[in-house]
């Protein structure tokens, strides 16, 4: 490793770009899971968002519109999931897996003509004056809109969950849908909204991949990031701040895995790919020592279908 600050900045920048889609996808899934819904279709929703936003930018050249289209694609996928699991009460696990398979196949079909198409990437929005600070400037103030957005999303979600009435109701629904129903809260509606929010975030995460990270369309380009996002939520014990930390940690590991050979780390790449999952397992073991933290934050009703009959 070199002491040259610009090398450090370069590596840090790649870590940020690797972490940003994880932040979006995991924050969305966190909100979904906190309402008691386990959506394993993150990967599929990301791919839908990635291909549709890239298709849109290819056709129109309009980047803001394309981000919206990517978000909408995620929402449509989540709506499908919500209809099957919340309205028709299908198994959430099976439906989520099906959603991933469906999203993978559909995006490959839609994106066939997009392979090899070039796009210059989302414009960087430099903050005047601040972006000129050495080291800190390029690290914090020369990014595209989604990076800033991911940084704002975390405190916004944390504030919503812990400080607002809506967040309290959402956590209540995730803890015990029967009790929430008994108090007159609309369990299914809350869960739909949380599921759609998760879809929107996953769609944005996918859009970031195809419009900023790559930027191009490659089949199955999310490459397991949806699964890492799912692991991240558990890793973070359903706490937004820890999702941010975990996303940067896992993003850093991804970068190490890509550039490991280049910077002199001779570890088999398969081992590096395993690291996020191994870390999650280790963290799960560690957090199980603090039952209070788990009981406070883990949604007790996760994955359970709700029958509003009694």
């Amino acid at each position: 490793m070199s002491d040259d600050p610009s090398t450090f900045v370069l590596i840090a920048l790649t870590v940020i770009t690797a972490a940003t889609p994880l932040v979006f996808a995991a924050m969305g899934e966190l909100v979904t899971e906190r309402s008691g819904v386990l959506n394993l279709g993150v990967e599929g929703m990301m791919l839908a968002g990635a291909v549709s936003s890239f298709l849109c930018v290819h056709l129109t050249g309009n980047a803001p519109l394309s981000l919206l289209v990517g978000t909408a694609a995620g929402i449509v996928m989540a709506l499908l999931f919500g209809f099957l699991t919340l309205s028709l009460q299908a198994s959430q696990v099976a439906t989520g897996l099906a959603l991933t398979i469906f999203g993978t196949g559909l995006s490959a079909l839609v994106g066939q003509s997009l392979i090899g198409v070039a796009y210059e990437g989302l414009p960087k929005l430099s903050v005047p004056v601040l972006s000129d600070i050495p080291t800190l400037g390029p690290l914090l103030f020369q990014h595209d809109v989604l990076v800033y957005g991911s940084w704002l999303l975390v405190p916004a979600v944390a504030y919503f969950l812990n400080r607002t009435r809506g967040g309290l109701v959402l956590r209540a629904v995730g803890d015990s849908h029967d009790a929430a129903h008994a108090l007159g809260y609309r369990v299914i509606r809350v869960r739909y909204l949380a599921t759609l929010f998760g879809g929107a975030c996953s769609g944005l995460a996918g859009a970031y991949l195809s419009m900023a990270y790559a930027p191009m369309w490659v089949e199955n380009m999310s490459a397991g990031r949806g699964w890492i996002a799912l692991a991240l939520v558990v890793f973070a014990v359903w706490q937004p701040g820890w999702v941010l930390f975990g996303a940067y940690l896992f993003g850093g590991i991804t970068i190490l895995q890509l550039h490991g050979q280049g910077i002199g780390i001779n570890v088999p790449s398969q081992l590096m790919s395993m690291l996020p999952y191994i870390t999650t397992i280790v963290v799960l073991v560690l957090i199980s020592l603090d039952q209070g933290r788990v009981r406070r934050n883990a949604p007790a009703a996760i994955g359970q279908a709700f029958h509003p009959t009694t």
């Binding site: 956590r171 209540a172 803890d175 009790a179 108090l183 949604p299």
Partner: peptide
């Protein structure tokens, strides 16, 4: 009891 175990006493009461 229609209580939310993972929430605090004050949060439970606020919900009702």
């Amino acid at each position: 009891f229609s209580l939310f175990e993972s929430l605090t006493v004050v949060e439970n009461i606020a919900l009702g």
